[in-house]
């Protein structure tokens, strides 16, 4: 299981680095991890996000809305759409920023034992963030972060009880 988790984390971080580059960010942040998770081919997290009405595109839209909303809070309305559009960075970031580190730390800490780590722990860590871009974007998208977090925790413990994950026979909700 640890191997499966390790492979998953590597692929998510790799994808998150691409997302960060697309957004012109110099570091990988929690929102890039969330985009990467939404793009990943992993059943549990995909189902959890789908429950909240989220896929890769919806997460991207929510993040853009959060950006524009927060600018509005500052009294800034950017009429020039060119400025609001993300500009791809010239190099792919390799460092995780504070928000991504925090999400990874919290996600990993939620597993009592390394061998209990599941892909959904990364999503859980992101959902543990209480302030900042991701929780705000989720709130603006009408996602109940606490409920989604509870469902994620439940999915992880169901998975733990089932033992090694097998593709068919998903735990019922």
């Amino acid at each position: 299981m640890l191997q499966v988790f390790g492979r998953y984390v590597r692929s998510v971080i790799e994808r998150a680095a691409e997302e960060a580059q697309e957004a012109g960010s110099r570091t990988i942040e929690a929102e890039h991890l969330l985009l990467a998770i939404a793009a990943a081919d992993e059943d549990t997290t995909r189902e959890l996000l789908a429950w909240a009405g989220l896929d890769h595109r919806a997460v991207g839209d929510a993040l853009q809305r959060e950006f524009e909303h927060s600018l509005g809070t500052a009294g800034v309305t950017a009429a020039d759409q060119e400025v609001l559009r993300p500009r791809r960075g010239e190099r792919r970031p390799s460092d995780a920023g504070t928000s991504a580190k925090l999400a990874l730390e919290r996600g990993m800490a939620a597993a009592g034992d390394k061998k209990d780590l599941r892909p959904a722990h990364i999503l859980l860590g992101i959902l543990e963030l209480r302030a900042g871009t991701v929780p705000r974007a989720l709130a603006l998208a009408g996602v109940d972060r606490r409920e989604l977090r509870a469902r994620t925790q439940a999915a992880i413990s169901d998975d733990g009880r089932q033992g090694p994950p097998e593709k068919p026979g998903k735990a019922s909700r």
């Binding site: 927060s70 500052a74 609001l84």
Partner: peptide, 16 residues
């Protein structure tokens, strides 16, 4: 959040 967003906006404005 407004601080974060305006910093990011300033970066993009600088690029443009």
């Amino acid at each position: 959040a407004a601080v974060v967003a305006t910093r990011r906006l300033a970066d993009r404005m600088e690029d443009v």
